[in-house]
Design a protein around this nucleic acid. Structure first.
Lengths: 351, 351
DNA sequence: TTGTATGCGTTATCAG
DNA sequence: CTGATAACGCATACAA
């Protein structure tokens, strides 16, 4: 057991080679002979040599850290959704020898933070979470030249940045049509915060579908806010208190959907027969059985479904690709959500 | 706008001082005169000087990074609980200029990872999540001399490491007593994975309380597994199918508690009147209304309650203190959970 | 294919 | 109170 960690100098001396050659051998440079490379690799293994990250970082300017700056303050949308996204991303990072640098900061500080992160060369790239419509962070990051990928989109075109998004508009369009086809005409929307682009798109899909079917919008049926369980609960109580309550609810996450189910239960109503509920389902892992061998239950909520964890993986890959080659053309990817019919939708009940 | 980031050399030349003096002034060394310090600080501000983290890290051996190594594989208990814990911890780190280094890795790799993290000096300290009974990570970390704090405990004494824990045993003891006092005698337990110390303690509290009241244990009423919504749902379906179902359920998290509520609802039973439910409530933020000005609802679940986010803050503080002074005596802290009576408990119903 | 010399941007040691 | 100078551990341009 060696007392002190062995560094490049010690390793090269032990091998009777120069630090240069050893470094090159370890970093896979082509000009080193396979024979020496084998020797070097063996010795490095045996002596338990590990390059110092800070020294390497100082020399190369690369930190092998990916920045994830998230706000806790207002948009707790981040909470369980974020955990699943990061789980997917982290898996990809690990395979490539990167780590996550996680920084919690209010949205209004994030521009300054990106600036500092770039100047300090603390991270090799960042993921932008929860983009607003016309999000200022994107312009800043482009100006800084820091590689980044946006989870979601910030504007209509999505041209001057790399992004991966779910087709939120189409998902909500389809779901609305599905409900209309079932015979519903009063359909409520319990949405996320509409300053966030994904929520704005969802509303567009909903409104467009209603308009196409000749159904007038009713502001009293539309809610926007943080996607928590109480949000769904409260919205439902308000909806049930209306003179003419809706017969169906579209909801932006299974979290408020659970609040909806609770409020309905308290009112003696059953999701499905008495009130249709369609949720956007991010496949949050704490809602899934762990044992995937077990027979799948019939899904409870009728849902638009897209795994946020898979999204995390994809975004991470895209970012690592950009870091490897910052000049590569901007990529973008739009995923369609599945539409899964569960137990919470039915034709409107006659009450 | 300066094109290139200004470094210590440039700053010192601009000031007509040596790098040494500038460095000392900036790092608050006592021997530098207040007058020069003021000059230096002003110039640093004006020229937008920021010390390079990797250079500082190379020179000092400190990375200003705190390691959080979490497993995704088996124990997804971590998922939403983890997000809230990290939100609390991150807040504290930010105030002190630390960042989180997040690494996802299966439990069996974590020992090696800690070893590497320490040897590489990649982090200044780590938080141990989800300790098992007799968790090997603790011995490893002590041997490595890497500062760490355990969230939870690994053994009875909790002597040779710093920890912060909730009194899980007492919480479940009290909850069990509460149910017995209401008249319940068949009380089910839907627990977390009992290899994890917190879950083992919870079971102890439950078993002890039953024994004290002369109630025999019934294995068919006890479940252990990942704390997901389906866990609660499935356990409840099994319980309801028993010849003699329980009249009350103790559950380790509000997540499975929601599954319990769903299964009861489907069976036409109401939590409270038909089946008492007591949950451990970590005050997960996605279950709380964001707007804290709003009048608080009457809590839904009767619950043992302790904020995991506050725990995150406390653990972070303890760790930063240890990093500042690794020789300080080992601290530990045991929090009592609140017991809050909600709408899901009542005397056993006559069916 | 391998080696020499230098730079990366700090902090720390030791003089003055 | 201030300043040269030497680490810190690696990568790389330039030589050989």
């Amino acid at each position: 057991m060696t007392r002190k960690a062995v560094n490049l100098k010690m390793l090269s001396e032990a091998l009777g080679l120069s630090q240069t050659t050893v470094s090159r051998a370890l970093n896979g440079f082509p000009e080193v002979s396979e024979k020496t490379r084998a020797r070097v690799v063996e010795a490095a293994e045996r002596l338990n040599y590990r390059p110092s990250p800070s020294a390497a970082s100082l020399a190369t300017g690369k930190s092998r850290l990916i920045g994830h700056v998230v706000s806790l303050s207002a948009h707790i949308m981040i909470n369980p959704h974020f955990a699943d996204f990061i789980a997917g991303a982290g898996e990809v990072y690990s395979e490539s020898g990167y780590d996550i640098l996680l920084r919690l900061a209010p949205l209004e500080e994030q521009e300054r933070i990106y600036h500092n992160l770039a100047q300090d060369q603390r991270v090799d790239g960042v993921v932008v979470h929860g983009p607003l419509t016309n999000d200022r962070r994107i312009g800043i990051l482009n100006a800084l030249g820091l590689p980044f990928v946006v989870h979601g989109r910030s504007d209509e075109e999505g041209r001057d940045y790399a992004w991966m998004d779910v087709n939120n508009r189409r998902a909500f369009h389809r779901a609305t049509e599905f409900l209309v086809d079932l015979g519903h005409r009063r359909i409520a929307l319990v949405n996320g915060i509409e300053a966030m682009n994904f929520a704005a798109r969802r509303r567009q899909g909903y409104e467009t579908a209603l308009a196409e079917r000749g159904i007038a919008l009713d502001e009293t049926l539309m809610f926007s806010g943080d996607m928590t369980e109480p949000q769904g609960y409260r919205a439902t109580r308000e909806l049930l208190a209306l003179g003419e309550p809706p017969t169906a609810i579209l909801v932006a996450s299974v979290l408020p959907a659970m609040g909806i189910a609770r409020a309905l239960g308290e009112a003696g109503l059953r999701p499905g027969p008495d009130m249709s509920v369609v949720a956007f389902d991010d496949c949050l892992s704490f809602l899934e059985p762990i044992d995937t061998d077990a027979p799948r239950d019939i899904p409870y909520f009728t849902a638009m479904r897209s795994s946020i964890r898979e999204a995390g993986k994809r975004v991470a890959r895209m970012l690592l690709d950009r870091i490897d080659d910052p000049q590569r053309p901007l990529e973008s990817e739009l995923w369609e959500a599945d539409f899964v019919v569960g137990q919470t939708t039915a034709p409107p009940s006659r009450r």
